[in-house]
Amino acid sequence: MQSSFRQYRSEAASHSHDDFHQIIIADLGMLELEVQGRGGCVSGRRLAFVPAGDTHAYRAVGMNRFLVLDVDIDVAAGAGLERLWQLAGASPYLEVGTGYAGHLTGLLQGLEQKRAISRIRRFTPDGQGNLQSESLSLLYMAGIEGIAASENAFADDAFVCQSLREVLGHAAAVQGDLGGADAMIPMRLQRLLAWIELRLSEPISIADMAMIAAQSESALFAAFQSYLGTTPMRWLGEQRLQRAYVMLGDPKNTMTLGNIAHEVGFTDQSAFSRAFSRRFGHPPIALRRSNRL
């Protein structure tokens, strides 16, 4: 299996590949696609599963970055990925459920960390690719503490296949184009909203939003008021609480309240419970209990 992070140009291009399926996941921006005449896009929780042999055209506008996975046909069949794709609707365009965007984020971050380890290994003093104390220090400095103690965590396809099973297992076919109200939102704002949706567990500032939207902070506030009727931080807070509501309402979700709070960007469980209660009129534990009766 081959994986790479790619940036696409605004000029359209097309090709096909016969010996592997291609799965495309957005890290930043939107990729317009046409797979065997079916138009759609990759952005936020929307990913593309391009079957082997299908001709596809693509183009992106503005800042963009995508994870592209070339999955051998035999690997996809043996790992159960084709079956999960069929169960999800066998569409080139799939959308991961609202409460499961963390699976996409985990895959993106895991492969990014693998790349960081690979870059450091090139310069290891022993010449054998073994991480030395100097290299481990670099990993810690890069914020990859969880990887330094287990350097082979992402050394093979097992991590990618398991992550893809989680993603495809919580995905469903969608209509190709965005359509509806989303089509009226400017591309730069759509790009920002999709970027935020995959990072609800992370600290996000107004400055971060303005940078991704490629506009000033004052223009960002104006865009949110004009197209979404609220401020950037209020919109962000609402998305976090809505994500938590979906997760708590899922009887199969066994995460603790503290872990759910962290997953939606709260560092303090008490603050999460207060915000949730103000928004929905009852504490999060009440919703969890009601869905397990």
Rank of each mutant, 00 (worst) to 15 (best):
M1W: 13
M1C: 08
Q2L: 10
R6I: 01
R6S: 06
Q7W: 02
Y8W: 06
R9D: 15
S14Y: 07
D19M: 05
F20S: 11
I24R: 10
I24G: 00
D27V: 09
G29W: 10
G29H: 09
M30L: 15
L31D: 14
L31N: 14
E32Y: 12
L33E: 11
V35S: 09
R38G: 07
G40Q: 08
C41D: 11
G44A: 14
R45V: 01
F49Y: 14
P51G: 05
A52S: 06
G53F: 03
T55Q: 12
H56E: 05
Y58N: 01
V61Q: 15
G62K: 12
M63S: 15
V71S: 02
I73E: 09
A76P: 03
R83W: 02
L84S: 14
L84T: 02
W85D: 01
W85Y: 05
S91P: 07
S91F: 07
Y93H: 13
Y93T: 05
E95P: 11
V96K: 05
T98G: 00
G99F: 08
G99N: 07
G102Q: 11
L104H: 10
L107R: 13
L108F: 04
L108E: 02
L108H: 01
Q109M: 09
Q109L: 11
E112T: 06
K114W: 05
R115V: 05
A116P: 02
I117K: 11
I117T: 10
R119P: 07
R119H: 15
I120R: 06
R121W: 08
R121S: 13
F123V: 09
E134Q: 10
L136E: 10
S137L: 13
L138V: 11
I144A: 14
E145I: 08
G146A: 13
S150I: 10
A155H: 09
C161F: 15
Q162W: 05
S163Q: 07
V167M: 08
V167L: 04
L168D: 06
G169A: 02
A172W: 02
V174T: 08
D177I: 09
G180F: 09
M184E: 12
I185T: 07
P186Q: 00
M187R: 10
L193A: 03
I196W: 02
E197A: 09
L198Q: 02
R199N: 00
I204Y: 06
A207N: 03
A210F: 04
A210D: 03
M211V: 04
S218K: 13
L220Y: 06
F224N: 05
Q225I: 02
Q225L: 08
G229E: 04
G237D: 09
G237C: 03
R240Y: 00
L241G: 06
L241V: 05
Y245I: 01
L248T: 04
L248S: 01
K252C: 12
N253K: 03
N253T: 01
T256I: 00
I260V: 13
I260N: 13
F266V: 06
A271G: 02
F272G: 12
R274S: 12
P283L: 05
L287E: 04
N291G: 15
